[in-house]
């Protein structure tokens, strides 16, 4: 077996943890290692950021957050880091990234995904982002989702 224990644990848990009282013991048994090996390895991946967090991921459609809009903003590159952090901290924003512009048709460099229970909540969320950015925003657009064409989880290893 040339794969590292890290890779084997990723593969064994990327679809989820076993729903048994001692899930890490079950993973260890399946991989033929000790529970301590698994706990250490997972703790290491949490510390170095390979694991963002461990927990429950709600399906936002099932819990009523059926509307989303990808809001995109044109802000000064010199200010984008500070502004991006402030926008990302808003409760209505689930993801916030800096991405490249494609001028002239795409002048936007800051992407903030806004979720809501309906279109009106998304509109209100975008208004919050606009208020926060104020004059720092030189232009923006909102791309509402119309249809999910494909959705599969990312797979690693």
């Amino acid at each position: 077996m040339s794969d590292s224990l890290d890779q084997r644990i990723v593969r064994a848990t990327q679809a989820g943890l076993p729903l048994v009282p001692e899930p890490y013991r079950k993973v260890a048994e399946d991989l033929g290692v000790t529970q301590q090996d698994v706990l250490q390895c997972i703790n290491r991946m949490v510390e170095d950021g390979r694991i963002r967090r461990i927990g429950a991921v709600p399906n936002h459609y099932a819990i009523g957050y059926v509307a989303n809009g990808m809001s995109v903003w044109d802000v000064d590159d010199a200010q984008v880091t500070a502004l991006g952090r402030a926008v990302g901290a808003l409760n209505c924003v689930s993801h916030c990234y800096r991405r490249p512009r494609h001028p002239p048709e795409w002048p936007y460099n800051l992407f903030a995904m806004v979720h809501g229970r309906d279109r009106a909540e998304v509109v209100a969320g975008v208004a919050q982002v606009a208020a926060l950015l104020g004059n720092a925003s030189r232009g923006h657009d909102v791309l509402y989702s119309k249809r999910i064409l494909k959705k599969t989880g990312l797979r690693f290893g």
């Binding site: 679809a15 989820g16 729903l19 429950a56």
Partner: peptide, 8 residues
Amino acid sequence: LTRFGPMY
């Protein structure tokens, strides 16, 4: 829930 476990 879409999943339960580590978010890589």
